[in-house]
Design a protein around this nucleic acid. Structure first.
Length: 364
DNA sequence: GACTCGTGGCT
DNA sequence: TAGCCAAGAGT
């Protein structure tokens, strides 16, 4: 018998399960995706909630399901509009994978979200967590849905000291939840664990005195709730310096660029920009050269207007912002010309929204 | 298994 | 302030 099995044997699993579900049914927050069990809407909410706070997701979710109310609507939607609906939420591959998966549901499953682990779990963007969450909530299947909340709660309940930053550790918690999960109410059980983690069993200072499962908690018993879970730290992000330009012509058009379909901020739009090197030439000169050689455009660039700093999880951008007037456009330009009104239809990352804001404020 | 992939709020 | 954090998945 391994260490986990030993711990499980000493636990009053039935009591824990009942106390958690009773608490959840009484105390759960009212959230828009809890109004019904529509598998499509549950799925959308789970994808939005990946690495994202509930308060942030709510307005996005309401707008998204209004605009794309079902599988068919999202499957048929223009990707440009889908990305626009996701603008500002981050991790944009989530929504491109979601639309890709929804198209497959439309074609392979007649528009009905599949209810088996094999079929639903095989869809793009559906990992072990999302699979368990959607199938348990929408279809009442007793499948673990282990996210950060669940690892935090269960690490404390069972006093598990494995590093939750390691991918392999998740499987330990899946085994634990498998032993705990309710066959009658898997939806309430899974959501109860997450709700507890969000409201009571929080990372910094958990509200143990209010906890409905305090008497089942090993960490509380030994006073180690603030030490758990164990989570190793990530390395510091690197810094990238770049120069960007808001280019306009005499008619007031603006020139924008679509990012590549892979990698960071894939398929989003941006103002033309280039990574700059120190020494040799000025940033302004490097920008002019880049526009000539790579973008097929000849422009007169003004003085530096300001610097935008944008922090990603694993990267920092320091963007020097310039304004410029287009002099000559070659036929093969990689830039798209749009009016100020049309600009609103394109999805920009927040970093480039900051650049545009700088241009708008300078024009006032 | 380590790295990539966003953003905003909190301490 | 500079980290840390929040309902992860793909490569």
């Amino acid at each position: 018998m391994n260490a986990l099995e030993e711990k499980l044997q000493q636990k009053d699993i039935d009591m824990f399960r009942d106390d958690l579900i009773t608490w959840f049914e009484r105390e759960q927050r009212i959230l828009p995706w809890r109004e019904d069990q529509d598998p499509y809407k549950v799925w959308v909410s789970e994808v939005m909630l990946q690495q994202t706070r509930v308060e942030t997701v709510i307005p996005y979710f309401l707008r998204f399901v209004e605009q794309f109310p079902n599988v068919e609507a999202l499957a048929e939607a223009d990707e440009e509009k889908v990305l626009k609906a996701w603008e500002g939420l981050g991790y944009y591959s989530r929504v491109r994978n979601l639309q890709s998966a929804v198209k497959e549901v439309q074609q392979q499953y007649g528009g009905t979200v599949p209810s088996t682990e094999k079929e639903f779990g095989g869809l793009k963007g559906v990992g072990p967590y999302t699979k368990g969450a959607v199938l348990s909530i929408a279809y009442n299947k007793p499948i673990p849905a282990v996210d950060g909340n669940v690892m935090r709660v269960m690490s404390r309940i069972l006093s598990i000291w494995d590093d939750i930053a390691k991918p392999k550790t998740r499987t330990i918690f899946e085994q634990a939840v498998h032993a705990f999960i309710s066959k009658e109410k898997p939806s309430e059980f899974n959501q109860g664990l997450m709700e507890l983690g969000a409201i009571i069993c929080t990372p910094k200072s958990p509200s143990c005195l209010l906890c409905p499962v305090q008497k089942h908690c090993s960490a509380f018993a030994e006073g180690s709730e603030r030490e758990l879970p164990v989570k190793s730290k990530k390395k510091k992000p690197g810094i990238k310096t770049m120069a960007a330009v808001v280019l306009t012509d005499d008619q007031g058009n603006i020139y924008i660029h679509k990012r590549p379909s892979k990698g960071l901020l894939a398929n989003l739009w941006e103002f033309p920009n280039v990574e700059t090197q120190k020494g040799i030439k000025t940033e302004r000169d490097q920008l002019v050269l880049f526009l000539e050689n790579e973008m097929g455009i000849n422009a007169e660039i003004d003085e530096l207007q300001g610097v935008v700093e944008h922090v990603f999880t694993h990267l920092v951008w320091n963007i020097s912002v310039f304004f410029g007037k287009v002099k000559q456009v070659s036929d093969g330009t990689r830039l798209k010309k749009v009016t100020k009104e049309q600009l609103e239809e394109f999805a920009f990352p927040v970093s480039h929204q900051k650049i545009w804001k700088m241009a708008v404020e300078a024009a006032e």
